[in-house]
């Protein structure tokens, strides 16, 4: 049986751990609310750009653009959004498992796919497994600005325009609520499902200078905004997931401290009982 001192040490260290997990829980909670705000602030932009793109693409006037056309897929790029740090429960592992499985299932040769990663965990995962990483970004802030990832998104979209990749699929954790996030797969490029979400007020626009030039500007921007949206969504999920993980860690620490305290008290009582019986038997021997 563990000695009194051992148990006391374990209680002490568990308490320390609990303090840390509790602090991380609080930090994640406040970051989560900021991340939610960011995601809300992004909505007007994405809604508007989607509306305009849909109304142009859906206007039927032979709107042709390479980004709208499906072409033969020779190379698929997977844009995988993970976090930089761990301690976020199943946040990273579930998404990486899903991506890995998808790649194994769909592709037989390494030339057919590549990944683009946001977040250190994802990058390390794919590098270790010798999966080609086309582009990467690490060290994103918890409240990313569009400017922070603009380079990455525009380079990614450029890869598609240059036909280095023929398909872009994004994997991220979609934020449903503070306790539930879902790994989501979304096909970003080519943009095929535009006309479906064309809204009712399909006003006819004048185009200055012309439709083609507008699409040239608009579609890359639209694709970039989709990536940014996924990133914001994923950030919210990350904080939510870390918050839940830290909450349960704190609860577990509480349980453990409870058990250990009980054990400690029993051991203490046993020691006292033993001491008394020794004294009593010592006294009895004297008589």
């Amino acid at each position: 049986m563990a000695s009194l001192r051992d148990i006391q040490n374990r209680i002490g260290s568990t308490k320390k751990t609990k303090q840390i997990t509790k602090a991380m829980h609080m930090v994640s909670a406040s970051k989560l609310s900021r991340a939610e705000e960011n995601a809300t602030a992004f909505v007007p932009y994405s809604a508007k750009i989607q509306e305009v793109v849909a109304s142009i693409a859906g206007s039927g006037q032979d709107a042709e653009h390479p980004m709208l056309q499906e072409r033969k897929v020779k190379k698929t790029a997977y844009f995988v959004i993970t976090s930089d740090r761990g301690l976020a429960g199943a946040f990273n592992s579930s998404i990486l498992r899903e991506v890995y499985r998808t790649i194994e299932k769909r592709h037989s040769s390494k030339d057919e796919y590549a990944v683009i990663t946001a977040g250190r965990v994802g990058r390390d995962f794919f590098k270790k497994r010798d999966i080609p990483v086309l582009k990467e970004i690490v060290g994103l802030s918890d409240q990313p600005n569009f400017a922070d990832i603009k380079d990455l998104t525009s380079e990614t979209v450029q890869l598609y325009i240059d036909e280095e990749i023929d398909e872009l699929i994004v994997f991220y954790n979609h934020y449903i609520s503070a306790i539930s996030q879902e790994v989501t797969e979304k096909k970003l490029l080519p943009l095929t499902d535009l006309s479906e979400n064309a809204s009712g007020n399909n006003s006819m626009y004048e185009y200055e200078p012309n439709q083609q030039d507008i699409l040239d500007v608009l579609l890359p921007q639209y694709a970039e905004s989709l990536i940014f949206g996924a990133l914001l969504d994923s950030k919210a999920s990350e904080h939510a997931s870390r918050m839940t993980a830290m909450k349960s860690a704190t609860d577990n620490a509480d349980d453990l401290i409870g058990d250990l305290t009980l054990q400690y008290n029993r051991a203490r009582q046993a020691a006292i009982t033993q001491e008394i019986s020794e004294i009593v038997s010592g006294a009895a021997a004297q008589e």
Binding site: A41, P44, Y45, S46, N145, F146, E208, D213, V217, S225
Partner: peptide, 27 residues
């Protein structure tokens, strides 16, 4: 007039005229 960016709305107010520079010239 409303001005929106991915980081959130910048401004929303009413104005008498908007003057800007499009790719094809001043508008």
């Amino acid at each position: 007039v409303s001005v929106v960016t991915p980081d959130g709305p910048v401004l929303e107010d009413s104005f008498e005229m908007v003057s800007c520079k499009a790719e094809s010239g001043e508008l």
